[in-house]
């Protein structure tokens, strides 16, 4: 049982989320997708924990399960030592004020039929905070904070560009004065010049309001830029977790090393080692036995196909799940 710890805002223990696959005429369960399969980490107050991985690795499902947008299969999520997964709906409503989310697609995540003002105020209305007048005042304040004009309060989402919509999404989260914001690919849909505007905004808001971010993304350069610590996921499992400096300078897991080396470098004069992984990510329905990465791993040895490596602290604050961590 966790001891009260003020340093940790969020603690995730052995979180699992399996999706059933239905098939046949009677829609029997014919298999399970192990989207998240035993993930444990903590997020410290005021930090940004980046979660990276390729499509289908379970990073988004992890974020959604923590917020109970998906029902966890098993595991434990402690937010300020309160058990989120066991909270009643009343307790959950209170918790949701403190835990907000910003979604990936700014085109799909806003209701096209209500004005930006109504959209941003929605959380306040649901929680019965303030009078209509106070709420409008607050909406104007928050819109200004995210770099939008208060005069745009009566406009509809289609009148805004992608970057502006993402600012609206951030305003919706921010107005609840949350402690934690799960940012699920918040800049992937944006052009580079707009992406940097939003990344700077997120960082400035974090400093001003002491926010904690769980930042989920597939783009390693973006994650390196914004994160204090970074976790790497592969096929539903966390394979490495370390401070940003350690992870990018000295990755211990072969997957992390390959991932970093695969990023095209915007410097035509650079010469570097490239590890090109063969094959595709295997299916999470029947993940490979032993270490899930072993069929694509270039340092795999016989033990890797037999025994699942433990996610262990290999160096101080540097965790990895590999039998031969760092032995490249």
């Amino acid at each position: 049982m966790a001891v009260a710890n003020t340093e940790h805002l969020l603690e995730v223990n052995n979180l699992k989320k399996y999706f059933p696959i239905k098939g046949g005429i009677l829609r029997h369960t014919v298999g399970t997708v192990k989207a998240v399969d035993g993930v444990s980490f903590t997020v410290r107050r005021g930090e940004t924990l980046g979660l990276v991985g390729e499509s289908g690795c379970g990073k988004t499902t992890t974020g959604r399960t923590i917020l109970r947008l998906e029902q966890a299969t098993s595991g434990e999520v402690l937010f300020e030592d309160k058990d989120v997964l066991k909270a009643s709906s009343r307790q959950m409503k209170a918790l949701r004020r403190d835990m907000q989310i910003v979604f990936q697609d700014p085109y799909a995540s806003l209701d096209p039929r209500i004005t930006v003002g109504q959209s941003v105020a929605e959380g306040l209305v649901i929680h019965g905070i303030g009078t209509p007048k106070e709420r409008e005042e607050r909406v104007r304040e928050v819109l200004a904070k995210v770099g939008l004009h208060a005069s745009q309060i009566n406009r509809f989402p289609h009148e805004f560009s992608g970057g502006q919509r993402q600012r609206i999404g951030i305003a919706r989260a921010l107005i609840m004065e949350p402690k934690l914001i799960v940012c699920d690919e918040p800049v992937s849909a944006l052009d580079v010049s707009i992406q940097s505007q939003v990344l700077n905004l997120l960082r400035n808001l974090q400093r001003e309001f002491g926010l904690t971010y769980l930042f989920i993304a597939h783009n390693l350069s973006v994650v390196e830029h914004i994160s204090d610590r970074v976790g790497v996921m592969y096929l539903g499992k966390l394979v490495e977790l370390a401070s940003r400096e350690d992870l990018f300078r000295e990755p211990l897991h072969p997957y992390t090393k390959a991932l970093i080396s695969a990023i095209p470098n915007p410097d035509p004069t650079a010469r570097r080692e490239r590890i090109v992984l063969q094959g595709d990510v295997p299916s999470p329905i029947n993940p490979p036995a032993g270490c899930r990465f072993h069929p694509r791993c270039w340092i795999a040895r016989p033990i890797c196909s037999e025994q699942d490596p433990e996610f262990a602290e290999k160096r101080k604050g540097h965790w990895a799940a590999c039998h031969f961590a760092g032995e490249f």
Binding site: Q164, Q195, S196, N200, L220, S221, E224, H225, N265, P266
Partner: peptide
């Protein structure tokens, strides 16, 4: 210049990314 400076680059962490204000 703005495009290159606004990109986060692996191994070159800057506190603030350059920004091209406005939109296309």
């Amino acid at each position: 210049q703005g495009l290159l400076n606004s990109m986060p680059m692996l191994g070159h962490v800057r506190d603030e990314l350059a920004v091209i204000p406005g939109t296309v």
